[in-house]
Design a binder for these strands. Structure first.
Lengths: 119, 119
DNA sequence: AAGTTACTCAACCTGATGGTTGACAAACTC
DNA sequence: GAGTTTGTCAACCATCAGGTTGAGTAACTT
């Protein structure tokens, strides 16, 4: 369900052109033609990219020729997913570091200096 | 470079099985065999998935049979990308109400601010 | 209503992806 | 050192993703 949604969102953003489209749309809405102009590929290709973004819920339009707009809420879905596991993992590493600090003997094989500037 | 990295990270997380691997690794390191056990697919398939995660920098191992561990720092890369455009878009929408009445005529001001990819 | 412009659909090609099985390599166990 | 366990590599297959071109459709302009 939301499972599938996440897959579509991540897949959509795995393409550099589509990330660029998102980047541009974050500063201004634009029509398909305007969006396609800077790229080397055909208009049809860009239209396809926009369909992928639309299916992922990242972008929307009111009608065919209407300007495309970014749906910023979708980002929440991603950040929620990311933060959950990031946080969990980091907590684990913090415990690990504490543990390693206690039993600091030999085997300095892998010092986990996890420099996270989280938040 | 980092461009490509981001693509690999998003592509890696576009697969539900790989997201599940990440989820499980966030609570504990595990060997390939342990990771593969719950799934229906072959061990080789899971091994491939792990290679994708590894190439994306999401996961690492010290040796072949060593437990796989999650590299939580990569998440920062994603959240930074997301937050940048999310924030930009949301600011825009906040201003939208006020601007809408006044800026009804065209503004041809898109000067190719192609800000893809963090350095 | 006709014409032009803006966009999408359909068919097709190519390369990448996720899966399989079988053979191999590395690493523990004895 | 021989054998078993654990993981990877290679070859192959089916499907998908991104690109193309050509034809069709929707929407403005007149």
């Amino acid at each position: 369900m939301s499972e599938d949604r996440l897959s579509r969102v991540f897949a959509a953003l795995a393409d550099p052109t589509r990330r660029d489209l998102v980047a541009r749309l974050s500063s201004a809405d634009a029509t398909v033609g305007e969006l396609a102009a800077p790229y080397d590929v055909s208009l049809q290709a860009v239209s396809k990219h926009l369909k992928v973004l639309e299916d992922a819920g990242l972008v929307s339009r009111e009608s065919r020729r209407a300007p495309v707009r970014l749906e910023a809420e979708v980002f929440d879905l991603m950040t929620k997913w990311i933060e959950r596991y990031q946080q969990q993992a980091e907590e684990r590493y913090q415990r690990l570091d504490a543990l390693l600090a206690e039993m600091q003997d030999s085997t300095p094989s892998r010092q986990s200096s996890r420099a996270e500037d989280a938040s």
